[in-house]
Protein backbone atom coordinates (compact mmCIF):
# COMPACT_ATOMS: atom_id res chain seq x y z
CA UNK A 1 0.00 0.00 0.00
CA UNK A 2 1.30 3.43 -0.82
CA UNK A 3 2.11 5.67 1.99
CA UNK A 4 2.21 9.18 0.75
CA UNK A 5 5.75 9.12 -0.52
CA UNK A 6 6.28 12.83 -0.61
CA UNK A 7 5.94 13.55 3.09
CA UNK A 8 9.69 13.38 3.60
CA UNK A 9 10.54 16.98 3.09
CA UNK A 10 8.57 18.66 5.85
CA UNK A 11 10.12 21.82 7.20
CA UNK A 12 10.17 20.64 10.77
CA UNK A 13 9.41 17.15 11.91
CA UNK A 14 7.77 16.84 15.30
CA UNK A 15 11.03 16.30 17.30
CA UNK A 16 12.55 19.32 15.58
CA UNK A 17 9.55 21.46 16.49
CA UNK A 18 10.16 20.59 20.12
CA UNK A 19 13.85 21.46 19.77
CA UNK A 20 12.95 24.82 18.29
CA UNK A 21 10.61 25.47 21.21
CA UNK A 22 13.44 24.84 23.66
CA UNK A 23 15.72 27.07 21.63
CA UNK A 24 13.15 29.83 21.86
CA UNK A 25 13.10 29.49 25.65
CA UNK A 26 16.86 30.05 25.97
CA UNK A 27 16.92 33.88 25.99
CA UNK A 28 14.44 33.97 28.84
CA UNK A 29 16.45 31.41 30.78
CA UNK A 30 19.56 33.45 30.20
CA UNK A 31 17.87 36.59 31.44
CA UNK A 32 16.62 34.71 34.46
CA UNK A 33 20.13 33.56 35.39
CA UNK A 34 21.45 37.07 34.94
CA UNK A 35 18.74 38.76 36.99
CA UNK A 36 17.80 36.17 39.61
CA UNK A 37 20.95 34.12 39.92
CA UNK A 38 21.73 30.64 38.62
CA UNK A 39 19.07 28.96 40.76
CA UNK A 40 16.74 28.37 37.83
CA UNK A 41 19.29 26.04 36.27
CA UNK A 42 18.90 23.65 39.18
CA UNK A 43 15.16 23.62 38.66
CA UNK A 44 15.49 23.03 34.92
CA UNK A 45 17.94 20.23 35.47
CA UNK A 46 15.88 18.50 38.14
CA UNK A 47 12.63 18.83 36.23
CA UNK A 48 14.24 17.47 33.07
CA UNK A 49 15.73 14.53 34.92
CA UNK A 50 12.51 13.65 36.69
CA UNK A 51 10.38 14.12 33.59
CA UNK A 52 12.58 11.98 31.38
CA UNK A 53 12.75 9.43 34.18
CA UNK A 54 8.99 9.21 34.45
CA UNK A 55 8.63 9.17 30.68
CA UNK A 56 11.03 6.22 30.50
CA UNK A 57 9.24 4.43 33.26
CA UNK A 58 5.81 4.81 31.72
CA UNK A 59 7.03 3.90 28.24
CA UNK A 60 8.55 0.75 29.69
CA UNK A 61 5.35 -0.09 31.50
CA UNK A 62 3.29 0.49 28.37
CA UNK A 63 5.68 -1.54 26.25
CA UNK A 64 6.35 1.26 23.82
CA UNK A 65 9.60 1.86 21.97
CA UNK A 66 11.83 3.89 24.27
CA UNK A 67 14.34 5.50 21.96
CA UNK A 68 11.70 6.49 19.46
CA UNK A 69 9.60 8.41 21.93
CA UNK A 70 12.38 9.78 24.09
CA UNK A 71 13.98 11.32 21.05
CA UNK A 72 10.88 13.41 20.40
CA UNK A 73 11.91 15.80 23.21
CA UNK A 74 8.37 16.42 24.34
CA UNK A 75 9.07 15.40 27.94
CA UNK A 76 11.89 17.93 28.05
CA UNK A 77 9.68 20.71 26.76
CA UNK A 78 7.09 19.94 29.41
CA UNK A 79 9.81 19.85 32.07
CA UNK A 80 11.22 23.21 31.05
CA UNK A 81 7.83 24.87 30.97
CA UNK A 82 7.06 23.51 34.41
CA UNK A 83 10.43 24.60 35.82
CA UNK A 84 9.93 28.06 34.37
CA UNK A 85 6.52 28.45 35.96
CA UNK A 86 7.55 27.10 39.35
CA UNK A 87 9.38 29.19 41.92
CA UNK A 88 13.13 29.01 41.69
CA UNK A 89 14.85 27.10 44.48
CA UNK A 90 11.83 25.07 45.46
CA UNK A 91 12.58 21.85 47.34
CA UNK A 92 13.50 18.93 45.13
CA UNK A 93 10.43 16.85 45.94
CA UNK A 94 8.23 19.59 44.57
CA UNK A 95 9.89 19.11 41.19
CA UNK A 96 9.49 15.36 41.51
CA UNK A 97 5.81 15.67 42.29
CA UNK A 98 5.34 18.19 39.51
CA UNK A 99 7.06 15.96 36.98
CA UNK A 100 4.92 13.03 38.10
CA UNK A 101 1.66 14.87 37.62
CA UNK A 102 2.78 16.37 34.33
CA UNK A 103 4.19 13.27 32.69
CA UNK A 104 2.30 10.41 34.26
CA UNK A 105 -1.12 11.80 35.10
CA UNK A 106 -1.70 14.55 32.59
CA UNK A 107 0.13 13.01 29.64
CA UNK A 108 0.41 9.24 29.76
CA UNK A 109 -2.85 8.32 31.41
CA UNK A 110 -4.46 9.95 28.39
CA UNK A 111 -2.41 7.88 25.98
CA UNK A 112 0.75 9.93 25.66
CA UNK A 113 1.88 12.55 23.21
CA UNK A 114 -0.87 14.22 21.26
CA UNK A 115 -3.77 12.74 23.18
CA UNK A 116 -3.80 14.63 26.47
CA UNK A 117 -6.66 17.01 27.11
CA UNK A 118 -4.86 19.21 29.63
CA UNK A 119 -1.53 20.94 29.33
CA UNK A 120 0.78 18.72 31.41
CA UNK A 121 2.93 21.51 32.82
CA UNK A 122 -0.11 23.49 33.87
CA UNK A 123 -1.77 20.49 35.52
CA UNK A 124 1.38 19.98 37.54
CA UNK A 125 1.54 23.65 38.46
CA UNK A 126 -2.10 23.72 39.56
CA UNK A 127 -1.73 20.58 41.64
CA UNK A 128 1.31 22.04 43.36
CA UNK A 129 -0.09 25.48 44.07
CA UNK A 130 -3.29 24.02 45.45
CA UNK A 131 -1.43 21.51 47.62
CA UNK A 132 1.65 23.48 48.64
CA UNK A 133 0.73 27.15 48.53
CA UNK A 134 3.58 28.26 50.79
CA UNK A 135 6.41 26.57 48.96
CA UNK A 136 4.91 27.60 45.64
CA UNK A 137 4.95 31.30 46.49
CA UNK A 138 8.51 31.58 47.76
CA UNK A 139 10.22 33.02 44.73
CA UNK A 140 13.84 33.99 44.41
CA UNK A 141 14.20 37.71 44.86
CA UNK A 142 15.58 39.80 42.02
CA UNK A 143 19.36 39.97 42.34
CA UNK A 144 19.48 43.72 42.79
CA UNK A 145 16.98 43.63 45.66
CA UNK A 146 18.08 40.48 47.43
CA UNK A 147 20.36 40.50 50.43
CA UNK A 148 22.12 37.53 48.99
CA UNK A 149 22.06 35.76 45.64
CA UNK A 150 22.71 32.03 46.07
CA UNK A 151 25.45 30.62 43.91
CA UNK A 152 24.93 27.46 41.93
CA UNK A 153 26.39 25.33 44.72
CA UNK A 154 24.26 27.06 47.31
CA UNK A 155 21.26 26.60 45.09
CA UNK A 156 21.83 22.84 45.03
CA UNK A 157 22.11 22.90 48.80
CA UNK A 158 18.88 24.84 49.16
CA UNK A 159 16.98 22.56 46.85
CA UNK A 160 18.15 19.34 48.43
CA UNK A 161 18.91 20.20 52.05
CA UNK A 162 16.31 22.83 52.71
CA UNK A 163 16.91 26.22 54.14
CA UNK A 164 19.28 25.37 56.97
CA UNK A 165 22.20 27.56 56.08
CA UNK A 166 20.45 30.60 54.67
CA UNK A 167 17.47 32.48 56.02
CA UNK A 168 14.70 32.45 53.42
CA UNK A 169 14.24 36.17 53.85
CA UNK A 170 17.70 36.69 52.49
CA UNK A 171 16.98 35.39 49.02
CA UNK A 172 13.24 35.06 48.52
CA UNK A 173 10.43 37.48 48.10
CA UNK A 174 6.86 37.44 46.98
CA UNK A 175 6.27 37.98 43.29
CA UNK A 176 4.89 41.38 42.39
CA UNK A 177 1.51 39.82 41.62
CA UNK A 178 1.37 38.15 45.00
CA UNK A 179 2.67 41.20 46.79
CA UNK A 180 0.18 43.47 45.08
CA UNK A 181 -2.69 41.25 46.13
CA UNK A 182 -1.72 41.26 49.82
CA UNK A 183 -0.96 44.97 49.79
CA UNK A 184 -4.31 45.84 48.23
CA UNK A 185 -6.10 43.66 50.75
CA UNK A 186 -4.46 45.53 53.58
CA UNK A 187 -5.73 48.76 52.08
CA UNK A 188 -2.57 50.26 50.62
CA UNK A 189 -3.51 52.49 47.67
CA UNK A 190 -2.41 51.43 44.23
CA UNK A 191 0.09 54.20 43.33
CA UNK A 192 1.97 53.67 46.55
CA UNK A 193 2.23 49.92 45.96
CA UNK A 194 3.45 50.37 42.44
CA UNK A 195 6.10 52.82 43.56
CA UNK A 196 8.00 50.15 45.46
CA UNK A 197 11.29 48.90 44.00
CA UNK A 198 9.97 45.34 43.67
CA UNK A 199 7.79 46.50 40.79
CA UNK A 200 10.63 47.72 38.59
CA UNK A 201 9.54 49.71 35.55
CA UNK A 202 6.26 48.02 34.63
CA UNK A 203 5.82 44.42 35.66
CA UNK A 204 8.27 43.72 38.40
CA UNK A 205 11.99 44.08 38.74
CA UNK A 206 13.75 41.37 36.77
CA UNK A 207 10.53 39.65 35.80
CA UNK A 208 9.75 42.25 33.19
CA UNK A 209 13.03 41.58 31.40
CA UNK A 210 12.40 37.85 31.46
CA UNK A 211 8.93 38.52 30.07
CA UNK A 212 10.53 40.55 27.29
CA UNK A 213 12.76 37.59 26.50
CA UNK A 214 9.74 35.28 26.32
CA UNK A 215 8.27 37.76 23.88
CA UNK A 216 11.48 37.57 21.88
CA UNK A 217 11.38 33.76 21.88
CA UNK A 218 7.73 33.87 20.86
CA UNK A 219 8.55 36.20 18.00
CA UNK A 220 11.16 33.67 16.86
CA UNK A 221 8.56 30.90 16.87
CA UNK A 222 6.16 33.10 14.94
CA UNK A 223 8.89 33.94 12.45
CA UNK A 224 9.61 30.26 11.95
CA UNK A 225 5.88 29.65 11.53
CA UNK A 226 5.93 27.10 14.32
CA UNK A 227 3.00 28.81 15.97
CA UNK A 228 0.34 30.97 14.38
CA UNK A 229 -0.39 34.49 15.49
CA UNK A 230 -3.94 33.74 16.65
CA UNK A 231 -3.30 32.49 20.16
CA UNK A 232 -0.56 34.88 21.40
CA UNK A 233 -2.23 37.94 19.94
CA UNK A 234 -5.68 37.07 21.21
CA UNK A 235 -4.31 36.09 24.61
CA UNK A 236 -2.27 39.25 25.11
CA UNK A 237 -5.01 41.45 23.69
CA UNK A 238 -7.55 39.92 26.05
CA UNK A 239 -5.22 40.43 29.00
CA UNK A 240 -4.66 44.05 28.03
CA UNK A 241 -8.31 44.82 27.38
CA UNK A 242 -9.60 43.14 30.54
CA UNK A 243 -6.93 44.79 32.68
CA UNK A 244 -7.61 48.19 31.16
CA UNK A 245 -11.34 47.84 31.70
CA UNK A 246 -10.82 46.91 35.34
CA UNK A 247 -8.40 49.77 35.86
CA UNK A 248 -10.80 52.20 34.24
CA UNK A 249 -13.55 50.93 36.48
CA UNK A 250 -11.58 51.26 39.71
CA UNK A 251 -8.03 52.62 39.40
CA UNK A 252 -7.37 52.29 43.10
CA UNK A 253 -7.86 48.53 43.10
CA UNK A 254 -6.49 47.35 39.79
CA UNK A 255 -3.14 47.49 38.06
CA UNK A 256 -2.98 48.42 34.40
CA UNK A 257 -2.55 46.46 31.22
CA UNK A 258 1.22 46.85 31.03
CA UNK A 259 1.70 45.48 34.52
CA UNK A 260 -0.44 42.46 33.76
CA UNK A 261 1.32 41.80 30.48
CA UNK A 262 4.80 42.05 31.92
CA UNK A 263 4.28 40.22 35.17
CA UNK A 264 3.74 36.63 36.15
CA UNK A 265 3.37 34.02 33.46
CA UNK A 266 1.50 36.13 30.90
CA UNK A 267 4.19 36.11 28.21
CA UNK A 268 5.25 32.53 28.90
CA UNK A 269 1.60 31.50 28.74
CA UNK A 270 0.81 33.45 25.62
CA UNK A 271 3.65 32.12 23.48
CA UNK A 272 4.62 28.78 24.94
CA UNK A 273 1.77 27.27 26.94
CA UNK A 274 -1.51 28.42 25.44
CA UNK A 275 -0.03 27.62 22.03
CA UNK A 276 0.41 23.95 22.85
CA UNK A 277 -1.50 22.61 19.85
CA UNK A 278 -2.54 19.38 21.55
CA UNK A 279 -4.61 21.03 24.24
CA UNK A 280 -5.59 24.27 22.53
CA UNK A 281 -8.50 24.80 20.19
CA UNK A 282 -7.35 24.17 16.65
CA UNK A 283 -9.58 26.03 14.22
CA UNK A 284 -8.60 29.63 13.48
CA UNK A 285 -11.79 31.03 14.98
CA UNK A 286 -11.55 28.59 17.85
CA UNK A 287 -7.99 29.65 18.62
CA UNK A 288 -9.02 33.28 18.92
CA UNK A 289 -11.90 32.38 21.19
CA UNK A 290 -9.79 30.02 23.26
CA UNK A 291 -6.93 32.44 23.77
CA UNK A 292 -9.19 35.41 24.40
CA UNK A 293 -10.99 33.39 27.04
CA UNK A 294 -7.73 32.38 28.66
CA UNK A 295 -6.40 35.95 28.68
CA UNK A 296 -9.60 37.33 30.12
CA UNK A 297 -9.76 34.65 32.82
CA UNK A 298 -6.09 35.23 33.69
CA UNK A 299 -6.75 38.84 34.65
CA UNK A 300 -10.02 38.05 36.42
CA UNK A 301 -8.40 35.36 38.56
CA UNK A 302 -5.45 37.64 39.27
CA UNK A 303 -7.73 40.49 40.27
CA UNK A 304 -10.41 38.67 42.26
CA UNK A 305 -9.31 35.12 42.97
CA UNK A 306 -7.35 33.54 45.74
CA UNK A 307 -4.33 32.65 43.67
CA UNK A 308 -1.58 35.13 42.81
CA UNK A 309 -1.33 34.22 39.14
CA UNK A 310 -4.20 33.11 36.94
CA UNK A 311 -2.39 31.91 33.82
CA UNK A 312 -2.30 28.24 34.73
CA UNK A 313 -5.92 28.05 35.85
CA UNK A 314 -7.10 30.15 32.93
CA UNK A 315 -5.35 27.86 30.47
CA UNK A 316 -6.64 24.73 32.19
CA UNK A 317 -10.17 26.12 32.14
CA UNK A 318 -9.88 26.86 28.46
CA UNK A 319 -8.36 23.39 27.89
CA UNK A 320 -11.67 22.08 29.19
CA UNK A 321 -13.52 24.22 26.71
CA UNK A 322 -11.23 23.55 23.72
CA UNK A 323 -12.94 20.40 22.38
CA UNK A 324 -16.33 22.07 22.51
CA UNK A 325 -14.97 25.23 20.91
CA UNK A 326 -13.55 23.10 18.11
CA UNK A 327 -16.88 21.42 17.52
CA UNK A 328 -18.68 24.72 17.18
CA UNK A 329 -16.06 26.62 15.18
CA UNK A 330 -15.46 24.24 12.32
CA UNK A 331 -14.45 26.27 9.30
CA UNK A 332 -16.52 26.28 6.15
CA UNK A 333 -15.63 23.37 3.90
CA UNK A 334 -14.93 24.02 0.22
CA UNK A 335 -18.20 24.14 -1.65
CA UNK A 336 -20.50 24.40 1.35
CA UNK A 337 -22.22 27.07 3.29
CA UNK A 338 -20.45 25.87 6.44
CA UNK A 339 -21.94 24.38 9.58
CA UNK A 340 -20.94 22.23 12.51
CA UNK A 341 -20.21 18.52 12.23
Amino acid sequence: MTGSPYNLHVRYATPQIMRQLMLALLPAIGAHVWLFGPGILVGLLLCSLFAVGFETLVLLMRGQPLGFYLRDNTALVTAWLLALSMPTLAPWWLYLLGAFFAIVVAKHLYGGLGQNLFNPAMVAYAVLIVSFPIQMTQWAAPAQLAAHVPSLAEAFDLVFAGQGALSPDAYTSATPLDHLKTQLRTGTPMPKVMGQPLYGQVGGSGGEVVALMFLLGGAYLLGRRLITWHIPVAFLAAVAVTASLLQWHDPAQHAGALFHLASGGAMLGAFFIATDPVTAASTPKGKLLYAAGAGCLTVIIRAFGNFPDGVAFAILLMNIAAPLIDVYTQPRVFGTGGGKP
Binding site: M1, Q64, F68
Partner: peptide
Amino acid sequence: KWRYPVYTLHP
Protein backbone atom coordinates in the same frame (compact mmCIF):
# COMPACT_ATOMS: atom_id res chain seq x y z
CA LYS B 1 -11.38 -1.89 0.62
CA TRP B 2 -8.33 0.11 1.67
CA ARG B 3 -6.83 -1.53 4.71
CA TYR B 4 -6.21 0.16 8.01
CA PRO B 5 -2.85 1.87 7.55
CA VAL B 6 -0.10 0.04 9.37
CA TYR B 7 2.17 1.88 11.71
CA THR B 8 5.55 0.36 12.16
CA LEU B 9 6.35 1.70 15.58
CA HIS B 10 3.37 3.47 16.98
CA PRO B 11 1.17 0.83 18.61
